[in-house]
């Protein structure tokens, strides 16, 4: 059963070159571009089934992030239709809403509810989350005193307790030390074995090769390849 269906999806957005009226007025006088219409995704048709692990590859600006935004529901398609049948857990923004002045403990709750968890559930899982993050000693310290590694560990720990049906992952494995990265990959594999649908955006092609069961290759907003992992990546490398 398809969980994510893209039906002739197009996404345009306007690149606003000026953010203030002053700049806008100047630009009009100088006859510069003011609004640029960008065709970010071109006529995408595909569906993703439950339990698939899909890697999305492509150069910067190919539309990978836009695609994730559409799936996450934060951005609407300009034309075409898009169906998402399960709750999406975005692992694309680790530490969403983290406030530097608040303690680790307070941020776990804040970040948890932003990711759609219930407060009771967070309370119940609190010790596990802290244990996974390995920063129990600093849990009542404001996170502005955390190292970036500690910060990411805390953020990742909350994110993996979201019990997702569809997981969006954007370059997150590039953070933390090797030991923690390994731990993350183990966790991702657990999700994979549990049958969670995973959409994975990464420039780390070897990870995509090892981890994904399908590849979508985007080029300038167009879907160039959809299918077997090694073939897709090879095509991407050849065209690069």
């Amino acid at each position: 059963m398809a969980e994510i269906i893209f039906n002739n999806v197009n996404k345009y957005f306007f690149l606003q070159h000026q953010k203030t009226l002053k700049e806008l007025v100047q630009a009009i006088f100088k006859k510069q571009k003011t609004l640029e219409r960008v065709h970010a995704l071109k006529n995408l048709n595909f569906f993703i089934k439950k339990g698939e692990v899909v890697g999305i590859v492509g150069k910067n600006g190919a539309g990978k992030s836009t695609l994730l935004k559409l799936i996450a529901g934060v951005s609407a398609p300009t034309s075409g239709s898009l169906e998402i049948k399960e709750m999406v857990s975005p692992l694309i923004e680790l530490g969403a809403g983290f406030h530097p002045e608040l303690t680790g403990r307070e941020n776990i709750f804040l970040n948890g509810v932003i990711l759609g968890l219930k407060e009771d559930y967070i309370k119940k899982k609190f010790n596990e989350i802290v244990a996974f993050s390995e920063i129990a000693r600093f849990i009542d310290t404001p996170i502005k005193y955390y190292s970036s590694g500690m910060y990411m560990r805390l953020a990742f720990s909350v994110a993996i307790f979201t019990d997702p049906k569809i997981l969006l992952v954007d370059e997150i494995l590039a953070v933390g030390d090797t030991a923690f990265q390994a731990k993350c990959l183990t966790k991702m594999n657990e999700f994979k074995d549990k049958g969670v649908t995973i959409i994975f955006v990464s420039h780390a092609l070897e990870t995509v090769r090892a981890f994904c069961t399908r590849v979508l290759y985007l080029k300038k907003g167009e879907l160039m390849y959809d299918g077997e992992v090694n073939k897709g990546i090879d095509q991407y490398i050849n065209e690069k």
Partner: peptide, 18 residues
Amino acid sequence: WELIKHLTLREIKGRYKQ
């Protein structure tokens, strides 16, 4: 409701701690 509550708390605590 819980999201509203925690975002509000963030706003309040963040400001006063500074």
